[in-house]
C-alpha cells in the first residue's frame, strides 16, 4: 500500500460518520482490554467487598459488586480481553479454513469445486447456534472448544464469498498472464488472486468478529462457557437469577457487549465503503 492509497482509504472511511464513531468506541474498548488489567490487576474472581453493592455507591466500585462480592468493573475489564480474544481467534481460524476452501474451490472449479461446496453446504444447513452448543457440550466447555466451535459454524459464508470472488477473478487477464508466465497454482492463488479478493473478505471478517463475540456471550450465558475465564456472557448469566434485586450485575456487561458489537458493525460498514466498490475501469 502506498502512502497515497492509505490516505485515500482513510478519506473514504471517514466519510461515513457512524464508522468513525464505531472506530472510536472500538479503539476505547481495545485500550480497555489491553491496559485495563493495569487498572484492575487482581483477578476478577476475587471476592473483595460486600455482595450486592449498587453501582457508584462505593469508592473503587464504579459498577458495584455481584452475588459473591466481586468487583464488576474488574470483571468488565478482564471480560473485554476474553471476549475480544475469543472473537478474534475464532474469526482467524474461520478465515483460514474458509479462505483456503473457497480459494481452492473457486480456482480449480469442476469436481474439486463440487466436492468442496457440498462439504460447505453440510455445515450451512445446520443452524449455527444449535451446532455451536452441541460442539461445545461434546468437547467440554473451555476457551479452546469455544473458539473451535465458533470457527466451525462461521467458516462457510467466508468460503462462499471467497469462492465467488475467485470465480470472477479467475478469468481476468492478469491471472491468465500469470499462468502464461509459468507461475504455479499455489503462487497464483495466494499471491495473485487472493490480494485482489480481499476487500469484501475483510468486511465480512470484521462482521464475523462481532458475531463471534455474540456467540461466545450466548454460550457463556447458558453456562457453556469456560468456567475459569470471566467473560461478559458469563457475568450476564450469573446475574440472571438475581436480576430483580441487583439489576446492575447483568446490565453493565450487557451494555459492554452492545457497544462492542455495535462499534464493530459500524466499522465494518466504513470498511465496506472504503474498500468497495473497486475503481471503475474504462470501458471501450
Amino acid at each position: 500500500m502506498t502512502a497515497s492509497s492509505l490516505a485515500e482509504f482513510t478519506r473514504r472511511f471517514s466519510r461515513h460518520g457512524g464508522a468513525v464513531l464505531g472506530a472510536a468506541i472500538l479503539f476505547a474498548i481495545t485500550m480497555l482490554a489491553v491496559f485495563g488489567p493495569l487498572l484492575y490487576p487482581e483477578s476478577p474472581w476475587r471476592m473483595v467487598q460486600k455482595p450486592f453493592l449498587p453501582p457508584m455507591m462505593t469508592d473503587g466500585f464504579l459498577f458495584g459488586t455481584d452475588t459473591l462480592g466481586r468487583n464488576i468493573a474488574a470483571g468488565l475489564v478482564h471480560g473485554a480481553r476474553v471476549s475480544l480474544l475469543i472473537g478474534l481467534a475464532s474469526t482467524a481460524a474461520a478465515l483460514v479454513v474458509g479462505v483456503t476452501t473457497g480459494a481452492v474451490a473457486g480456482f480449480f472449479g469442476g469436481r474439486v469445486d463440487d466436492v468442496l461446496m457440498r462439504f460447505t453446504e453440510l455445515f450451512q444447513t445446520i443452524p449455527n447456534f444449535a451446532l455451536a452448543i452441541v460442539l461445545v457440550a461434546i468437547l467440554q466447555p473451555s476457551t479452546d472448544s469455544i473458539v473451535l466451535a465458533i470457527a466451525i459454524v462461521s467458516w462457510p459464508p467466508i468460503a462462499r464469498l471467497v469462492r465467488s470472488e475467485f470465480l470472477s477473478l479467475r478469468s481476468r487477464e492478469f491471472v491468465q498472464a500469470s499462468i502464461v508466465q509459468g507461475q504455479s497454482s499455489f503462487q497464483i492463488i495466494f499471491t495473485q488472486i487472493l490480494p485482489n479478493a480481499l476487500p469484501p473478505v475483510i468486511v465480512m471478517a470484521s462482521l464475523m468478529v462481532a458475531t463471534a463475540v455474540l456467540l461466545e456471550s450466548s454460550l457463556s450465558f447458558m453456562g457453556l462457557g469456560d468456567p475459569n475465564t470471566m467473560s461478559w456472557g458469563y457475568m450476564i448469566g450469573a446475574g440472571r437469577t438475581v436480576i430483580r434485586q441487583a439489576w446492575w450485575i447483568s446490565f453493565f456487561p450487557g451494555i459492554a457487549i452492545l457497544l462492542t458489537v455495535l462499534s464493530i458493525n459500524l466499522v465494518g460498514e466504513g470498511l465496506n465503503d472504503a474498500l468497495n466498490p473497486r475503481l471503475s475501469r474504462r470501458t471501450r
Binding site: 483477578s43 474472581w45 476475587r46 471476592m47 452475588t67 459473591l68 467440554q140 466447555p141 473451555s142 453456562g223 457453556l224 462457557g225 469456560d226 468456567p227 475459569n228 450469573a238
Partner: peptide, 23 residues
C-alpha cells in the same frame, strides 16, 4: 452451587493451590 464452587476456587487460589473449575 456454581457460585459456591467459584468461591471455593478463589479461597484455594489465594493460598496457592491452583484450581481449575470443570464444566
Amino acid at each position: 452451587w456454581q457460585r459456591w464452587a467459584e468461591a471455593v476456587r478463589q479461597n484455594l487460589n489465594e493460598v496457592g493451590i491452583q484450581v481449575e473449575l470443570q464444566a
